[in-house]
Simulated assay, not measured.
Amino acid sequence: MDKPDHEKIQSGKGDEQETRERILAAARQLMSQKGYKGATTRKISELAGVNEVTIFRHFKNKERILIELLEEMTEIRPALEKAIHACGHDVKAMLMHYGEAYYNALVERKEVLIICLIESQNHPEVFNLLSRMPQIADEMLSEKLQEMHEAGLLPKGDFATAAHMFVSAFFHSFLARHWVKVDCDSLIDIPTMTESSADILLRGIGSR
């Protein structure tokens, strides 16, 4: 028996979504291995098992694939939300979990993030999307610090600046380790950095 029309439509949409996801997965893999220029649409199509026409039907060009990958990767709220709520009323523990979660999110995305850092010089849209990760991290931490202040757990402070400085320390450490590739022996290890950064933030707020 033939499927009803609505089931055929839903099946078609499912096939299209599966094809789109295969293209993105192939592009992600190739860009991490060969860089943005080396991941040609021909190679992406071969790895995804589709022809190039299909790629251009789903994405206008290769830059659009990169932008969609970055949009997917900048959604770090779930990981940061989990870190924020993992430690109850322990402010220092929350900060340490938050810093570690943010740094790990960067490392998990390092291959494509580095490609985006390079390509952002020529593509402002890519730069704007790349900036979203530290912006989200700043905003979420600032809001949490304000919430803890209102709960009587922190004195009044400039939480926006404190959050920005805290998040920036982890972003710069990520760049030093994975883009500039500074000798790791000369860098503070991440566990020490999370604890020290939390202490510095708390002392800064407490001394106001």
Rank of each mutant, 00 (worst) to 15 (best):
I44L: 02
I44F: 01
I44Y: 00
S45F: 06
S45W: 04
S45H: 05
S45C: 03
S45Y: 02
E46H: 09
E46V: 10
E46S: 07
L47Y: 13
L47V: 14
L47E: 15
L47R: 15
L47S: 14
L47N: 10
L47P: 09
A48I: 06
A48C: 03
A48P: 00
A48M: 04
G49L: 07
G49W: 06
V50E: 06
V50L: 11
V50I: 12
V50N: 02
N51I: 10
N51H: 10
N51G: 02
E52M: 14
E52Y: 12
E52K: 15
E52W: 10
E52N: 13
E52A: 13
E52I: 09
V53S: 13
V53A: 14
V53T: 07
V53L: 13
T54K: 15
T54V: 15
T54H: 12
T54L: 15
I55F: 08
I55E: 05
I55G: 01
I55M: 06
I55H: 06
F56E: 04
F56G: 05
R57M: 12
R57L: 13
R57Y: 09
R57C: 04
R57V: 08
H58I: 05
H58S: 11
H58Y: 13
H58V: 01
F59L: 10
K60A: 11
N61I: 05
N61W: 00
K62V: 01
K62F: 00
K62M: 03
K62T: 01
K62H: 03
E63Y: 03
E63M: 06
E63N: 09
E63V: 02
E63G: 07
E63K: 11
E63P: 00
E63W: 05
R64D: 14
R64G: 02
I65L: 01
I65S: 03
I65V: 06
I65W: 01
L66Q: 04
I67T: 03
I67Q: 09
I67V: 06
I67W: 04
E68S: 02
E68W: 04
E68P: 00
E68K: 02
E68C: 01
L69P: 07
L69R: 05
L69H: 06
L70V: 02
L70P: 01
L70Y: 03
L70R: 00
E71F: 08
E71K: 13
E71P: 07
E71A: 11
E71S: 12
E71L: 13
E72H: 12
E72Y: 04
E72T: 10
E72D: 13
E72M: 11
E72K: 09
E72P: 03
M73L: 14
M73R: 11
M73N: 11
M73K: 09
M73G: 14
T74F: 11
T74H: 13
T74K: 14
T74S: 14
T74C: 13
E75R: 15
E75W: 14
E75S: 15
I76P: 12
I76E: 08
I76K: 08
I76R: 11
I76H: 08
I76G: 08
